[in-house]
Computed example of a mutant assay.
Amino acid sequence: MPNDFNQRIIDEFRANNGRVGGPFEGGRLLLTTTGARTGAPHTTPVGYLPDGGDQVLVIASAGGAPKHPDWFHNLVANPLVTVEDGVFTYQARATVLEGADRDRAFARAAEADPGWAAYQARTTRTIPVVALRPVSGGPPNAASPGAGLKLLHDAFRRELSLIRREIAESGPGIGAQLRVNCLTVCQGLRNHHTGEDTTMFPFLTEHHPELAPVLERLRAEHERIATLVAELHKVVSSTAADPALVRAEVDRLADELERHLAHEEEQLIPVLDA
């Protein structure tokens, strides 16, 4: 069972679609492992780092304690875990990174947040980095299709807001983790809009022909957003990316995306939930 402190965070996370405040603000994931000795499920709030695509990284820092956290021992014994990210709950397979792969990932994390380096400096153990790759998925954790759409949209809003803050706090260059964060959002938007264009919009066209003008506008907006995503991808991928230029591209994308998301929610959520 989680301790009282962790349980309060878990309850707040689940009640607020992945958002928590206080000392664990920024904790972005609930990880449920199977007890190595007991076989019982154990849920722990952890931070994570995007790693491109669907894969995310978690770091078994335990605040720099001399021993690895219990959740790490559990996933080594049973690598199949459950992940909650505030939008989706899914099973993932955990892989402990080794050698150069671990060192590169940890260096990227420490560049983005020096706290990770401080934890490593407190202990003689090598702090593990674990990759979590989904093996199963499902719809958003929402009571209705419309609520699921809003939940997914809010996740994109949140990620872009975090990226804006990270750029504002960055130095003269763009760090490796910030670059990965931007590229991950770009890929997520492409996947989301492709799914809408190929699945949701054809369904709505068939069952609600009166929405044709709305869907035509939304498809056109997808094309404009795809152009902005490509521009951001190009700027961020440069080895000498200028933070001011990246910020300008992120702002352009975020502003255009917000107009699109607000219009889509206004027009489609009532229909999806009818």
Rank of each mutant, 00 (worst) to 15 (best):
P50W: 04
E196M: 09
A109K: 02
G35H: 08
A107K: 07
D101N: 08
T184C: 07
V76G: 02
G53I: 11
R164T: 07
H73M: 06
C182K: 02
T32F: 11
T227I: 12
P172S: 11
T43A: 05
R93V: 10
A77Y: 08
A230G: 10
A36V: 09
F24I: 06
A36Y: 09
L261H: 05
A62Y: 10
N17K: 10
A176C: 04
P69G: 05
T123A: 07
V130W: 01
G137T: 13
P2F: 12
N16Y: 12
P202E: 07
W71N: 00
A248L: 08
R28K: 14
K150S: 09
E249S: 14
R179A: 07
A212T: 13
L132N: 01
T198P: 00
L29F: 08
D101K: 15
L31S: 01
R164N: 15
D103W: 06
D101C: 06
H233E: 15
F88W: 14
F88A: 05
P114F: 11
R190E: 15
R190A: 11
L268W: 06
I59R: 00
T124G: 14
V130I: 15
R19N: 06
L183P: 01
A131T: 03
A117Y: 04
P69L: 10
Q7E: 13
L149S: 01
F13D: 00
T89L: 06
A262G: 02
R190H: 15
A65K: 03
N74V: 04
F156M: 10
F24L: 15
E98V: 09
A36H: 13
P243I: 07
G26W: 15
G63K: 05
R219P: 00
V214E: 05
F203K: 10
D154R: 12
P79K: 05
L149P: 00
G148M: 06
R158S: 04
A212W: 08
D70E: 13
G39A: 09
R8I: 03
F5A: 15
